[in-house]
Simulated assay, not measured.
Amino acid sequence: MRKITTGFFISLLVFLFLSGCNSNSNGVVNEDLFQYKDSYVGDNSAVGNITKQLPSPTGEQISELELKTTEPPYGIVLNYVPAETTDQIAADYKELALYNATFIFALVKNADWVDFKFVEKEYRVTRESLESWYGKDLSEFKSEDELSKFTQKYFEDENKVNDFFK
């Protein structure tokens, strides 16, 4: 009996240890996005991990990731579908597309464009147009915090975001 109890106790400790090492408050592993800095479009693992950590519109989730690597310019297509939940809040697709494209271009060296195919809207964002809008080379950023702080002032003005897509 003591042998069974000891085995159960050890198994329980191992399980708790492993669970504690891989979780945060909402049960999702929260990795540093900048560990994928200098990735390439052809690295589906890195690009997939980047896009999984980027925000999605409320009520939508990425259903498919397409990497366009046959010939330059190289690009990424993110296809979104309705999520399991039915609580649909009007999403600011434009701001979300710009924010996510900013991180993709900062992390993926050879990404020239990203297509966002949301449930209700589609947008294409190019590296050239986004860096021109910011007036800065996105590959210069060294941390998620630094890049987030930089983008905040651009997203405060809704007109500025709308002007990007004209």
Rank of each mutant, 00 (worst) to 15 (best):
residue 147 L to N: 03
residue 114 V to R: 02
residue 152 Q to D: 13
residue 33 L to F: 03
residue 164 F to T: 01
residue 44 N to V: 12
residue 45 S to P: 00
residue 151 T to H: 03
residue 117 K to S: 14
residue 51 T to M: 06
residue 155 F to M: 05
residue 146 E to D: 06
residue 73 P to Q: 02
residue 163 D to Y: 11
residue 99 Y to G: 01
residue 30 N to T: 13
residue 126 T to N: 08
residue 93 Y to N: 03
residue 142 K to I: 09
residue 62 I to K: 06
residue 85 T to H: 04
residue 10 I to A: 14
residue 132 S to I: 07
residue 16 L to R: 08
residue 62 I to T: 08
residue 71 E to K: 12
residue 30 N to A: 12
residue 22 N to R: 11
residue 102 T to H: 04
residue 32 D to N: 15
residue 65 L to P: 01
residue 50 I to F: 02
residue 25 S to D: 12
residue 26 N to L: 14
residue 9 F to A: 15
residue 14 V to Y: 11
residue 79 N to G: 00
residue 155 F to W: 08
residue 128 E to Y: 06
residue 144 E to N: 09
residue 33 L to P: 05
residue 3 K to T: 11
residue 116 F to A: 06
residue 50 I to S: 01
residue 80 Y to F: 12
residue 26 N to F: 14
residue 62 I to R: 07
residue 26 N to E: 13
residue 141 F to T: 03
residue 118 F to I: 07
residue 21 C to V: 13
residue 13 L to R: 09
residue 163 D to K: 14
residue 157 D to V: 02
residue 83 A to M: 04
residue 139 S to N: 07
residue 69 T to A: 08
residue 154 Y to E: 07
residue 116 F to I: 08
residue 146 E to C: 04
residue 118 F to V: 07
residue 4 I to V: 15
residue 41 V to Q: 04
residue 90 A to L: 13
residue 67 L to D: 01
residue 126 T to Q: 07
residue 144 E to Q: 13
residue 60 E to V: 04
residue 69 T to I: 11
residue 8 F to I: 13
residue 71 E to C: 00
residue 87 D to Y: 13
residue 159 N to F: 00
residue 79 N to S: 05
residue 159 N to P: 00
residue 164 F to V: 02
residue 96 L to P: 02
residue 64 E to D: 07
residue 116 F to H: 10
residue 133 W to H: 10
residue 10 I to P: 06
residue 103 F to N: 00
residue 8 F to L: 15
residue 166 K to E: 10
residue 105 F to E: 05
residue 18 L to N: 10
residue 166 K to P: 00
residue 148 S to T: 14
residue 53 Q to L: 07
residue 35 Q to D: 05
residue 69 T to M: 07
residue 97 A to M: 05
residue 114 V to E: 02
residue 117 K to E: 11
residue 78 L to P: 00
residue 51 T to Y: 03
residue 166 K to Q: 11
residue 84 E to L: 08
residue 92 D to M: 04
residue 155 F to G: 03
residue 1 M to I: 10
residue 80 Y to A: 05
residue 24 N to L: 12
residue 80 Y to L: 04
residue 39 S to L: 04
residue 155 F to A: 05
residue 27 G to F: 03
residue 13 L to E: 12
residue 15 F to Y: 15
residue 138 L to Y: 01
residue 55 P to H: 08
residue 60 E to Q: 12
residue 79 N to W: 01
residue 89 I to E: 10
residue 115 D to A: 12
residue 38 D to Q: 08
residue 5 T to K: 14
residue 156 E to Q: 12
residue 16 L to M: 14
